[in-house]
Amino acid sequence: MPRDSVTVVQMEMPGMPKRLFACTPSKLATFADCPRRYRFAYVERPSPPKGPPWAHNTVGSAVHAALRSWWELPIEKRTTAAVRQLLYGAWSPTGFRDDEQSHRWRAKAATWLTDYVAGLDPADEPAGTERTVGTTTPALALSGRVDRIDRRGDELVVVDYKTGRVPSTEDEARGSPALAAYVLGVRRTLRRPCSRVELHHLPSGTVAAFEHTDRSLANHVRRAEDIAADIATATEAVEAGQSPDEAFPAVTGRQCSWCDFRPSCPVGRAAVPARESWSFLPEEPAAD
């Protein structure tokens, strides 16, 4: 018997371990928000074309890139001037209304970074930046990329940068499935104690934190496994002949106005009007 055939037979033998569902927090969140968007992003190949990029995502991406690169510099070069230059190098005008708006938001983001980096100790080397970590549960192979992993005594702390218009809260830190997954991933990957998660909101200079317990993490794992089970059910339904639109229904609402796959979703387009690609940027009131 050919070697490939032996492998298939062995994989199908009774008693063999069940294959884990490989996922990220983003993948699970996409299905929880809208099964049809999940289908477009992760099932259909080729994936349908996306709509235009969003300015607020441009801001967040540039800030994250600048901070990652700042920590990669030699300690003596980790200055406020350096982080501004790194932001300028990472900046893109995509999603903004015009060049004036792009330049104004680049200046805003540079100010956030200058203030944030001024409060950091350049010599306090993180355990990781943009580090991919992973763990397994009885049903999942869960992985994700952490913005920063700090050393605090004998423990590690998950740090997530935020650039949205509203300051982060403790409820957000506690309820974030991604942060809980990162804690489990850090424990498994780096083999160090980790319970604390922090959301660093750069525009306001605030930090929202939460200390996870075994119980809180177990709750997050249970919810993640429930979502994965729903994904498997939908996938199996399509394989059995059910319409993909029925197995992966659209969940309509105001989120349809900014969905990346709006161009490919008539249901979403009919639900609400589209938003401008810069509409999530809080604008200053006009001068009198």
Results as ranks from 00 to 15, higher is better:
193 P>W: 09
153 G>P: 08
166 V>G: 08
168 S>V: 01
151 R>T: 02
193 P>R: 07
196 R>Y: 09
200 H>Q: 11
200 H>W: 14
197 V>C: 10
187 R>Q: 14
165 R>T: 15
164 G>E: 02
206 T>R: 14
154 D>R: 09
179 L>G: 09
153 G>A: 06
179 L>R: 12
169 T>C: 04
204 S>F: 07
192 R>P: 00
155 E>G: 00
169 T>I: 08
177 P>C: 07
164 G>N: 07
150 D>N: 11
182 Y>G: 03
181 A>I: 02
192 R>V: 06
168 S>I: 03
187 R>T: 10
191 R>A: 15
195 S>R: 15
153 G>V: 06
205 G>Q: 13
206 T>I: 10
199 L>K: 12
170 E>A: 12
178 A>Y: 08
153 G>S: 06
171 D>N: 14
201 H>S: 11
206 T>H: 10
161 Y>A: 00
152 R>N: 04
196 R>D: 11
199 L>N: 09
175 G>H: 08
179 L>Q: 10
155 E>S: 03
191 R>N: 14
194 C>E: 05
185 G>K: 14
166 V>E: 13
189 T>K: 11
175 G>M: 10
191 R>L: 15
163 T>S: 04
190 L>V: 02
153 G>M: 06
201 H>R: 13
156 L>G: 01
184 L>N: 02
177 P>T: 07
183 V>E: 05
190 L>S: 05
187 R>H: 10
189 T>H: 08
198 E>D: 01
168 S>Y: 00
200 H>C: 10
203 P>G: 06
174 R>P: 00
164 G>D: 01
165 R>N: 15
176 S>I: 09
167 P>Q: 09
184 L>H: 05
154 D>A: 09
150 D>S: 08
169 T>A: 04
189 T>D: 12
190 L>I: 09
152 R>V: 07
157 V>P: 02
194 C>K: 04
189 T>C: 12
187 R>P: 00
